[in-house]
């Protein structure tokens, strides 16, 4: 009986070991000088990290990734909260479900397709970018594409907020209605304060999505320094065969993500072992 269970979970063990193997590989090579120039690599201690952190392009990618987290978490949560509140107050259940799915549909599109569409929509010559003062040029590109990522992902926050709104005790809503409270007041004082859980979950997911940001900026502006994130930097070093630098950059990505991932994994445990 034990044997069967071990057999059942064997693919899980193998893939998990592989994932940790990849992690260890990154860590190991980040302490070497492995690159196209040094195929016979040797250990260099922290030299690759020093090189990495003194690269202005890496510094910029790190700052941009952190800003991307701020934009996606702040604006994504706000958009999700507003859309969820509006959907919540629609009387018909059917319409509520249709609207929820409607605001989630960008999650079912590939980011490359979304990127191509927005690249043209924001184009200064052929798109609405004409009225917005060339939003893909220079520093503006970062803000434009990070807002496009809000368009892609905020449906997820909408869904999480709605799920919490539906959990609100009906009797509280009824007594507020009897007291003659307005819908807006009810939302702000009763419903929204009870959705803290959604705020936490959305924030965790948005942080991870922002750290992973690649497809969208890459398909809009390629490897442009104005929108280069940590993953794009890592990818660039990988394609140029600066593998030690790419590994060190990957370790930085892992370290930043771990801040969110480890507490989330521990939090989830309560649910899994029920």
């Amino acid at each position: 009986m034990r044997i069967t269970l071990i057999l059942f979970s064997l693919p899980l063990f193998i893939t998990t070991i592989l994932l940790y193997g990849f992690l260890a590989w990154n860590l190991y090579f980040s302490f070497t000088n492995f690159s196209v120039l040094n195929p016979d690599y040797k250990f260099v201690g922290l030299a690759t990290y020093l090189q990495l952190f003194s690269d202005p392009l890496f510094q910029s990618a790190l700052v941009k990734t952190l800003f991307w987290i701020v934009v996606l978490v702040a604006v994504g949560n706000l958009a999700g909260l507003v859309i969820a509140s509006l959907i919540y107050n629609v009387a018909s259940t059917t319409w509520r479900n249709i609207l929820t799915a409607y605001f989630i549909y960008p999650l079912s599109l590939s980011l490359v397709a979304s990127g191509i569409i927005w690249r043209w929509l924001l184009d200064a010559d052929r798109g609405i970018g004409h009225f917005l003062g060339n939003p893909l040029q220079g520093d503006a590109a970062f803000w434009s594409i990070s807002l496009v990522s809000v368009w892609v992902y905020s449906g997820l926050a909408t869904l999480f907020y709605l799920a919490m709104f539906y959990n609100v005790d009906k009797s509280q809503l009824e007594s507020a209605q009897i007291d003659g409270a307005s819908k807006l007041y009810t939302m702000l004082s009763i419903v929204i304060p009870q959705s803290k859980q959604s705020l936490i979950i959305s924030t965790i997911f948005f942080t991870l999505f922002a750290i992973q940001m690649f497809d969208l900026p890459y398909s809009i502006l390629f490897l442009n320094p104005n929108t280069m994130t940590l993953v794009m930097y890592t990818f660039m070093k990988f394609t140029a065969f600066y593998l030690a630098v790419a590994s060190a950059s990957a370790v930085v990505i892992i370290a930043i993500s771990a801040v969110m991932v480890i507490p989330y994994a521990l939090l989830s445990l309560k649910r899994w072992i029920k």
Binding site: L19, Y20, T234, I262, Y264
Partner: peptide
């Protein structure tokens, strides 16, 4: 479970080189 979850939720893009 925690070991599996941590590996799963870490950005897969960081594994590009290996």
């Amino acid at each position: 479970l925690v070991v599996v979850a941590v590996a799963t939720y870490l950005p897969y893009q960081s594994a590009v080189v290996p």
